[in-house]
């Protein structure tokens, strides 16, 4: 799969925070842009594995991937 500016012509069927979605983004960094996360302070995981912020541009998405996008919250 070729990624031009992190996007492809292929639509991937993925799951983001439990919701099924179609995405054009080829990488995790591009996906966050496409979904509108912008400069929000978030952490990410794919299929249960942590993906550090610095690794997002180089992390390729595949159909069926489960992506988690989380932020700070109150806790006990």
């Amino acid at each position: 799969m070729t990624a031009v500016a992190g996007r492809t012509d292929v639509r991937l069927e993925i799951v983001v925070n439990g919701e099924p979605r179609e995405a054009r983004a080829a990488t995790l960094a591009a996906l966050l842009d496409e979904l509108g996360y912008g400069d929000q302070r978030v952490a990410t995981a794919i299929n249960g594995d942590f993906v550090p912020e610095r690794a997002r541009p180089g992390t390729t998405l595949r159909t069926g991937d489960h992506v988690e996008v989380v932020a700070p919250r109150q806790g006990g």
């Binding site: 925070n17 439990g18 979904l35 509108g36 996360y37 912008g38 929000q40 302070r41 978030v42 952490a43 988690e68 996008v69 989380v70 932020a71 700070p72 919250r73 109150q74 806790g75 006990g76």
Partner: peptide, 22 residues
């Protein structure tokens, strides 16, 4: 203080506001 993390929607500001306060 203890804190946690939870799924965040795009364009949501809850996480950021909480973290700034803490």
């Amino acid at each position: 203080v203890t804190v946690s993390l939870r799924r965040e929607a795009a364009r949501a500001k809850g996480g950021e506001r909480f973290w700034d306060m803490i």
